[in-house]
Structure formats: C-alpha cells, structure tokens
Simulated scan of single mutants.
Amino acid sequence: MIDRRTLLAAGTAAAMSPALPAWAQGGGATNPPFHHIAVGSLRATVVNDGAATRPDATQGFVVNAEPAQVASAFRAAGQAGNALENPYNVTLVRTPAGLVALDVGTGATPALMTNMRAAGLDPAEVVLIAHTHFHGDHIGGLISSDGSAAFPNARIMVPEGEWRFWMDAGEESRATPARRPGFANARRRFAPYQGKITPFAPGAQVAPGISAAASHGHSPGHVSFLVADGGAQLLVIGDAITTPSLFMANPEWYPVFDMDPTMAVATRRRLLDQLATDRIPVVGYHFPMPATGRVERAGTGYRLIAG
C-alpha cells in the first residue's frame, strides 16, 4: 500500500485544472453512450465519457507526418474535413470480485457517471480501479469537483513504472513546461485514496479475469488489460493505439502525446500484429463508439472492423 506521505512528498496539491490541453476539455455527447460486451461469463461495458474536437488534426498532432499526409489518411477513411473527434471511453468489467473500472475518464463533466447509470452500473459498486497510465484524461475522474474521492468504495491499482515516474520529484524537475503540470495533477487525483493504492507489475492479475500487459511508450509505465474467461478474450489497450484512421493505417506515425515515440511505435506494431493474427477483440479509449472491434491487415497497415 502507499500512504499519504508518499503521495504528497513530491509537492503540494495542484490546482483544479484536469491538466488537459484546452481542446481536449470538451464534453460533447457521443452516441451510443455505452456498449456491452460478453467475454465468456464476464461482462465488459464500454461507457463513453464525452468527446472533444481538435479543430485541425493536420497541424501538430501527428509529429512525423506532413499535414497533407494526415489529410489524405482522413480522406481514405471516408472523413470529410480535418477535425479530430476524440472520444473518451472507460471500460468496466463485472467480475466475481465486483465491478472493476479500467481508467476513470476526464472528470471534466458528469458524462461518465450519467452514462454508467444509463448502462445499469452504479458508481458506488466500483470496488477496484486499475489504471493504464496517468495522463489527465484517464485519471481526472478519480475525484469530484470538491476534491473528494468520486469512487469512495474503490481500491486503486497502478502500474508500478507509471507510479514511479509521476511521483518522482527529479522527473518533475526535468520535465518540459507542457508536461510538468501532469505530476502535480497525478498527486492531487490520487490523494483521496491514500492507503488504498497498490502498484502492480506487467503480467499481474489485477482482478479475476483481468491481467496487465506491458504496452509502454505512450507513457513510461503504460499497460493494457487482457480480459479473459475460458477461450474468450478482450484487450483493453488504453492509449497504446489511438485514432484508428491515423495510427492503425500508419502504425509508424506517432501523436504528440507519445512520450517515448520509438518505444510507442514498436509497441503499436507488436499489438496490431498480435490482434490481427490472433483475432482478439479490442477496446480503444479513443476509438469512435462502440469503441470495439477486430483488427485486420490492410496493405502496409491495419484497419479496425468495428462491432
């Protein structure tokens, strides 16, 4: 377990900002707002936490592609215009041990709580929250507007590499100005759960039927979660792969938010090959709802067959 001293040693609490880029703080509705997936005897539910729009994703979003290439990728996917609709999709799994949340959304709007209830899920039922990583749109929902725990009955499990990085004052001092607020934001979001936080290593089982798989690169300790029961499987990939029209079709591209681009691209290629070869259904945090489907090879890249 991790205590309050560990949480607060790296500095004081952050301001109320969820440490998201201005364009990413939207809360637009996305339909359908939830989607149930059977995984053997387990039931996963993907719940939307709203969406934001980046007005022109050809500018500054894909670091190693020219604007014309990004625009061409959108056209190839049948999209008109260059705006990027960026949904936030939280996966919850009903397990024998109770309801488990894999990330908790932005916390910027009531959308997650509203859509959970619409899906028949009571936020008070959440007994465990397991995180893929600590970027603001994945941990913002840990606290309510008054700073209290939004899921007071939940224990928290965190990737050990992710915790080590974001709680390190040395890493914070070396971070770029754009990235530095994320350190204080992480401390603030986890503070109400003092004494209830447990780190885990890749490969660990975080709950019955849910195990962690290393998928580093987007962030230092990023993990994905394999939900499995019998022969049924579902891979919840967090941000290891985002925006299928861009980063499945062109797995060598990387977005500005990938913290270690070389590792992120290698991880993305490995996951896409595995998903296409083994035909494992996938859930993407930033995929268009229903945010799930199967990956298949398409030319030199891949594509998502939603459903």
Rank of each mutant, 00 (worst) to 15 (best):
I210P: 05
P288C: 00
P123K: 08
G107R: 11
M116H: 13
T198H: 14
L226K: 06
F247Y: 06
V227L: 03
P220M: 05
D278Y: 03
N153G: 13
G28I: 02
E252F: 01
D229G: 07
R180A: 11
D273G: 12
V127A: 15
P21Q: 13
G299E: 13
I143H: 05
M116G: 06
V93Q: 11
A228H: 01
Q79I: 07
I305H: 15
A149D: 01
P177W: 06
P288V: 00
T267A: 09
R294P: 02
D122S: 07
A266L: 02
G11H: 07
D278L: 01
V282A: 14
P261C: 00
R188I: 03
H286S: 15
T277S: 14
R303D: 09
F151W: 09
Q205F: 10
P18Y: 03
A306F: 11
H131T: 07
P32E: 10
I305T: 12
K196M: 00
S211Y: 00
P199K: 09
V104N: 15
V70K: 15
F287Q: 06
R189I: 05
E85P: 06
G231E: 14
G120W: 08
G230M: 04
M248V: 09
H216M: 04
A169F: 05
R174D: 03
V90K: 15
V39T: 13
G120H: 08
R4S: 03
I305E: 15
R294Q: 08
P192W: 02
F74C: 03
G301E: 10
V39I: 04
I139V: 12
P220E: 09
V236P: 07
Y285M: 01
T30K: 12
M16Y: 01
V295E: 15
T106G: 13
G28N: 12
A264R: 01
T267E: 12
G136P: 08
A169W: 02
R188E: 10
F225V: 03
V90R: 15
P255F: 03
M289S: 13
H131F: 08
V127C: 14
E160N: 04
V223K: 12
N153I: 02
L7Y: 00
Q59K: 08
L275Q: 06
V47T: 12
A19M: 10
F134N: 04
M16E: 11
N86E: 10
A29D: 15
M116Y: 06
S41F: 07
A57F: 07
N153H: 04
G27L: 08
A298G: 14
M289R: 14
P55W: 00
I156Y: 05
S215C: 12
G140R: 11
A186W: 04
P220C: 07
A29Q: 14
D229S: 10
R279Q: 08
M157W: 07
V265N: 12
A101D: 14
P290A: 03
A57W: 10
G161Y: 01
V90E: 15
M289E: 11
L112H: 10
P152F: 02
V39W: 09
G27A: 05
E162G: 07
G299K: 08
I129R: 13
V223C: 11
A24P: 14
S173P: 09
M16K: 11
R187E: 10
A80M: 02
R297Y: 02
T58N: 13
T242W: 00
E171R: 11
G161T: 00
D260N: 05
T12M: 10
